[in-house]
């Protein structure tokens, strides 16, 4: 009976993942490997960025009049924020669908999301990345890594660490069913600062980690060390987010850009 419970939990989490995220690895790989009916529009310089803003990016975000005359770096930063906010919304709905999450203390649900969403965002972002760039605007655009690197400091430092993480993470060859459990494990984490009912969360975390381990054994029978490798990735993601939060703080201090109120809430007093 325990094994069948675990399989049910894995299936429920996978279904919640497919239902709540508009992009997933299977979709992204279809586009990145050139198998989609329409190839993405490639953004590789200022000119193609402007063209994209009039087409694919314009559909994704309302590139308001206030931004039109701002420099490219600020406009790209704005787009990144819009994508993050949308993913936080999706992650919240996903979390609510993880059995047991909604029964947790409401303050603890807030804390788990506050600390977990960026780790989850960067883990899932890897699905939309290859060594040359990143899918944007629901897969209708592709922005090159070189172009992002060529932006002025500090914006040029925003994405490169995520690419470096993604290349190592993608070499593990996880599929969406593995990623669903991995993202659930990121969110339901018992050692976030300020949690009230740690035991309750640890119990939930343990059941998800157990399911993840079992699922990896059956889904990747030839890769014995995949589970410990993934646990290490949880540590790497925490470091990636700490560095990201510092960079955002620097941008907020030195640049004349606004930060979305939802992201402000999340970053405030984070680390």
């Amino acid at each position: 009976p325990q094994l069948s419970d675990q399989k049910t939990l894995a299936r429920q989490i996978y279904e919640a993942y497919l239902k709540n995220f508009n992009m997933n690895k299977a979709k992204a790989r279809t586009i990145l490997t050139g198998k989609a009916s329409t190839p993405p529009f490639v953004i590789h310089d200022m000119e193609t960025l402007q063209l994209a803003e009039q087409t694919v990016l314009g559909k994704m975000v309302d590139t308001a009049a206030a931004l039109r005359d701002r420099e490219a770096e600020v406009r790209i930063f704005h787009c990144c924020q819009c994508t993050s906010v949308e993913t936080v919304t999706e992650l919240t709905e996903f979390a609510k669908s993880v059995p047991g999450f909604s029964n947790l203390d409401l303050n603890d649900q807030v804390t788990l999301l506050k600390y977990g969403v960026h780790e989850a965002i960067f883990a899932m972002l890897a699905s939309s990345m290859n060594k040359d760039g990143l899918l944007v605007a629901y897969g209708s655009g592709f922005i090159t890594r070189e172009f992002l690197k060529s932006l002025r400091r500090p914006f040029s430092e925003m994405m490169e660490p995520k690419f470096q993480f993604a290349m190592k993470f993608n070499s593990l060859e996880l599929d969406d069913s593995d990623l669903a459990l991995f993202v659930a494990a990121i969110i339901c984490c018992g050692d976030r600062p300020g949690l009230v009912n740690v035991t309750h969360i640890e119990r939930l975390q343990e059941s998800i980690i157990q399911v993840l381990q079992l699922h990896l054994l059956t889904n990747h029978p030839d890769n014995t060390f995949l589970f410990p490798k993934l646990l290490q990735k949880l540590v790497d993601l925490r470091q990636l987010v700490t560095e990201h939060a510092l960079l955002v703080q620097e941008i907020k201090k030195t640049e004349d850009t606004s930060l979305h109120p939802l992201l402000q809430e999340i970053y405030k007093d984070m680390y």
């Binding site: 919240t92 807030v110 809430e265 007093d269």
Partner: peptide
């Protein structure tokens, strides 16, 4: 905590849009 995270709290309670910049 709820006071400092009004939008997150709102998202958890219902499916409202977090709004635009």
């Amino acid at each position: 905590l709820k006071e400092k995270h009004k939008i997150l709290h709102q998202l958890l309670q219902n499916s409202t849009s977090p709004g635009h910049l």
